[in-house]
């Protein structure tokens, strides 16, 4: 099937537009973050909403920090940032769909496409979480890695639209890779939030540390919960993705597991995520250690995408 170059060009254009819009959204979030006054404990009015459920007396929750009469300026910036994020996501989605139409296949046949789709999932995850948790002002922290990864994807990893090679012509491309994309995109959020958790805990222990950022973050407890709940949503999907990969490898490469570098690092990331889940049930490992483990695990996911594809030769024929 030949590639439709016009559509492919539109897709590229939309990709760049989406990245740019995210960049602006990021700036707006930062403005909101920077100008919102510090939390006053007594005014933390809102409850953390977990899976849509109010949790009574779950302690001070992520709060709308200060309700002022009317909408103050940071508030307006925050709303614009959300609007921009939605706009960016729409552009992003159009870009992905157009790629798929232009090439006549699932639009995740190489690293550029993979990264684009994973970042889209990350943004959508964030938009969904923002509806459920009062964490809008953290938008900048989530969009920063998204913008960086999209920039790298659009430059260093960029691949022109083309059909995929015989090894990738299988419906497992759809199943295995979309599970990997979905879980990697989801994992980005807890990865970032766990880092913020570490900042918050450090600050709570010694208010002199992170004196500017610390007070503006939601409560540590809430960050921890947000990270945990997103992780346990993504982890089974990741597991499923790895199993599908093994099934595909059995059909394509002659064995279901062969310690190919990509398989190895996926295994390592999986084990580290399992470690995260265990750490939350182990005395002395909850809290900060668990957060470190979660961030390390996401680091492994990113490492698998970039380093293993670009530096190490393996069977995974992306790049």
């Amino acid at each position: 099937m030949p590639v439709n170059d016009t559509l492919a060009n539109y897709s590229d254009w939309l990709y760049r537009a989406a990245a740019l819009v995210y960049l602006f959204a990021m700036i707006f979030y930062t403005v909101e973050q920077a100008f919102t006054r510090k939390a006053k404990r007594s005014e933390q009015a809102r409850e953390l909403v977990g899976a849509g459920a109010p949790v009574e007396s779950a302690g001070p929750a992520i709060g709308r920090i200060e309700e002022q009469p009317g909408r103050d300026r940071p508030e307006r910036f925050g709303r614009m940032a959300v609007a921009l994020t939605v706009l960016g996501a729409l552009l992003h989605l159009s870009s992905i769909v157009l790629r798929g139409v232009a090439t006549g296949r699932a639009p995740w046949g190489n690293m550029y496409e993979y990264g684009a789709a994973a970042m889209f999932v990350a943004v959508v995850t964030w938009l969904v979480l923002m509806r459920k948790f009062e964490v809008r002002r953290l938008g900048a922290f989530v969009l920063t890695p998204v913008v960086i990864l999209m920039f790298l994807g659009g430059t260093a990893l960029y691949t022109a639209a083309a059909p995929v090679q015989p090894a990738l012509q299988s419906y497992w491309l759809v199943v295995h890779v979309s599970a990997a994309i979905l879980s990697s995109g989801l994992f980005l959020v807890p990865g970032v939030v766990s880092l913020l958790y570490l900042v918050k805990v450090r600050h709570d222990r010694d208010p002199a540390k992170f004196a500017r950022l610390g007070p503006r973050l939601p409560e540590a407890d809430a960050l921890d919960r947000l990270a945990y709940r997103t992780t346990i949503f993504a982890f089974p999907i990741y597991t499923f993705g790895i199993i599908c990969g093994a099934i595909w490898a059995e059909a394509a490469w002659g064995r279901f597991w062969g310690w190919d570098p990509k398989e190895t690092v996926a295994f390592v990331a999986w084990v580290v995520y399992a470690g995260y889940l265990h750490s939350r049930a182990t005395a002395g490992w909850r809290g900060s250690r668990a957060a470190v483990i979660n961030s390390v695990a996401f680091g492994m996911v990113v490492f698998n995408l970039f380093f293993i594809n670009l530096v190490i030769a393996g069977l995974h024929s992306y790049a």
Partner: peptide, 20 residues
């Protein structure tokens, strides 16, 4: 549980050289 956790991390660590 703690030993299991440490063994898990050791397993992850030990698997890495095979990728590098």
């Amino acid at each position: 549980m703690r030993t299991a956790l440490i063994l898990l991390f050791l397993l992850a660590l030990a698997a890495m050289p095979g990728a590098l």
